[in-house]
Structure formats: structure tokens, C-alpha cells
Amino acid sequence: MKRFLAFAAVTLTAAAGMAVAAVPAQATPVKGASALSAVSAVDAAIIADGVRLRSSAGGSTVIGYLYYGDYGQLLSSSGGWCRFRLGGRSASGLPSGTTGWVSCSYLATEDGWKFNGPAVDTLQE
């Protein structure tokens, strides 16, 4: 419930500062990572601290770090990795619109979807 309320607060904050893209009402809810590829843009939030935003899925180049409550859009997914675009300035200072790859396990969508597979990115290098 705390995560839902935090996500709702982030979504409302984002809506107050900018137009938030929404999935059409007739869209089917996203149930798994493979279904994300069919959705053009899904609002999502980071649900952990220190999540690495990478230049490629599983790549070694780290663009920056994301923190609980950073929000944006899921653009696609591949093998447990989600392509993510920031909807606003991140807690670590990354600018709005920065795009990269994060482990899907650290994301949750507005409709409650959360990747159920194992984390593909750990805090150990």
C-alpha cells in the first residue's frame, strides 16, 4: 500500500508539472515483460534506491543512478531489461528525457504491474 501511495503521489506531482502520457482506456493491462513491447508508452516509477540507468541492456556503461519515486515511461523490454525514459529530473540530477536501460525488477507501473522475474542487475559490480 505504501508503494501505491508513493506512486500515486509521484504521478500527481508529475501531472501538476507537465502533461502525463496515458495508456488508452481500451488497452489491455500489461501482465508480463514480453507484453511491454506491444505498449508504446507506459507510465512507471522506480521502486528502489541506487538503480543503475545503463546505456544498453546489460551493458557495463552506467549513465547515472535512479532513486525511489523517479518516474518516466517504459519504451520496450528485452530479457528482463526495460528501456526507460525519465519523465522529470531524477533525484540524482539526470535531466528529464534521459533514456537508458534498467532492470525491470526495479520498476512498477500505475496499474500495479511489477516484473516477477529475478533481478538482472545487482548492486555488486
Rank of each mutant, 00 (worst) to 15 (best):
R85W: 05
Q124L: 13
P29G: 05
Q124M: 08
G100R: 01
G72C: 00
G17L: 13
G58Y: 05
F4N: 00
G80Y: 00
A45W: 02
S60F: 08
P29V: 03
V10G: 03
Y67F: 15
V102P: 04
A22R: 09
Y106P: 08
T99P: 11
A57D: 00
S55A: 15
A91T: 15
T61N: 12
Y67Q: 11
P95E: 13
L36H: 06
S92K: 01
G93K: 09
T98E: 08
K2L: 12
R85P: 04
P95W: 08
T28S: 04
G97L: 04
K114P: 09
S96V: 12
A45P: 02
D111V: 02
A22P: 00
L12M: 13
T28C: 03
A108C: 00
R85Q: 15
L74Y: 09
S90E: 05
D111M: 09
G93H: 10
V10R: 12
A15S: 14
Y65I: 04
P95M: 03
A41Q: 12
A91N: 10
R52T: 07
A35N: 01
V30P: 02
S56F: 07
T13N: 15
R83S: 03
G88Q: 12
L107V: 05
S55Q: 14
M1Y: 08
L5N: 08
R89T: 15
G112H: 04
S105W: 06
L74A: 09
G50Q: 08
G79V: 08
R83P: 06
S92Y: 02
G17M: 12
W101M: 03
G88I: 06
G17R: 13
A38D: 09
A27I: 00
S60K: 13
Q26F: 09
T98F: 01
S40V: 02
Y106C: 04
Y65F: 10
A8K: 13
G58R: 10
G97I: 06
D70A: 11
S105A: 15
M18H: 14
A91C: 00
G87Y: 04
V42A: 14
S60V: 06
G59R: 06
V30E: 05
P29Q: 07
L36G: 04
I63W: 00
T99D: 03
G87A: 15
A38S: 15
W101Q: 09
C104Y: 04
S34V: 07
A119M: 02
G100T: 03
S76G: 05
R85N: 09
T122E: 02
A48R: 13
R83Y: 00
S90A: 13
S78P: 00
W81K: 07
Y67S: 05
V20S: 10
L107K: 03
A35K: 05
D49T: 06
M18S: 15
D49E: 14
A119I: 00
L66N: 10
D70S: 04
G79H: 08
V120N: 05
K2N: 10
L75H: 03
A6W: 06
L75Y: 00
G79M: 11
V120K: 14
I46G: 00
S37W: 03
